[in-house]
Simulated assay, not measured.
Amino acid sequence: MSQQPEHLPSMDADYALGDEQIRDYRANGHIGLRGLASPAEIAVYGDAIRTIVKELNYHRKPIHERDTYGKAFIQIGNVWEKSEIVRRFVMARRFAKVAAELMGVEGVRIYHDQALFKEPGGGHTPWHQDQIYWPFDSDKTITMWMPIVPVTEEMGSMTFASGSHEAGYINKLVISDESHRTLRQYIEAKGFGQTTYGAMAAGDATFHAGWTLHSAPGNPTDRMREVMTIIYYADGLKAAEPDSNARKADLAGWLPGVKPGELAASHLNPLVYRAAK
């Protein structure tokens, strides 16, 4: 029996984020945080996320017949719109406060969420930068990546190119074989160190900046790697003129009704945290 919203675990309690962790994030463009969500919270919210993904899984071809992007994961966006339980999770004050503190901003809005489930035998996630998709006038963006099942070393978690966020916009390559090849060469040429946080418990999380180069290995295990992501941006950002088809699509899909130069704040982008004055 599913839980009623009034009986859901609260997600308002603060996570103690230290100054050194904030400095590390800003220097490297990523950080790993252990125990951001409790086992009890993951048991409830993870099950709700899993149910929606199962209902909306659009893949009909076996993995070996898909392209690189299709092999990488089952991807369902704005899961919060489809479930009151998931909405409570995505709008959690705890996660949003961490995002704001890492970026050094007073308030954050939701850009969108994504469930990213890498199937057994699923392929690698190519190197890419998230923010090539995002039509904002600032780089004050951040993504939380949280497994809702234990992720072993073999199953693979994210790999980050440390310090690569400082390079800003590198190129327009969307997630593809070409982005993997080209950006891997770029990382090697620039000498960026590569960091992974290894095995992760359900409820652990990584955060990374919009320009941070990242990838993930394939899943050679017989278990689904189930991950929920939430993208935040600083309150007050404006929509930029989209300079690619990817950004045009994002502007229309995730900032509906917002025009370039206007405040980035549609009905899909609620303010989820603001620091007390």
Rank of each mutant, 00 (worst) to 15 (best):
Y69N: 02
I22C: 02
Q21C: 10
G18L: 15
Y69L: 04
E20W: 12
A48E: 11
E55C: 00
K61Q: 13
E41I: 10
E65K: 06
H30T: 03
Y25K: 06
N28H: 15
I22A: 01
I52F: 09
P62V: 00
N28L: 15
E65L: 08
H64W: 12
A27W: 03
I42T: 01
I22Y: 05
D67W: 05
K71Q: 13
R23G: 02
R23N: 06
I49N: 07
N28R: 14
L36A: 09
E41F: 10
L56V: 01
H59I: 05
G46Y: 03
N28A: 14
Q75Y: 15
Y69V: 02
G18A: 14
Y45E: 06
R34G: 04
K54F: 09
A48L: 06
V44P: 08
A27V: 03
Q75M: 08
H59S: 05
P62G: 02
Y25I: 00
S38N: 04
K71G: 07
F73K: 15
D19H: 08
R34S: 13
A48Q: 10
G77K: 06
P39F: 04
N57W: 11
Y25T: 01
I42H: 06
P62L: 07
E41G: 14
P62M: 06
A37L: 15
E41D: 11
L36K: 04
G32I: 00
Y25L: 08
Q21F: 12
S38D: 11
L33P: 11
D19C: 02
R66S: 05
E55V: 01
L36D: 04
N57A: 04
R50D: 09
L56A: 01
R26Y: 09
A43C: 12
S38E: 15
H59G: 03
I42P: 13
I22P: 01
I22N: 04
I49Y: 13
A40S: 15
T68S: 05
I42E: 12
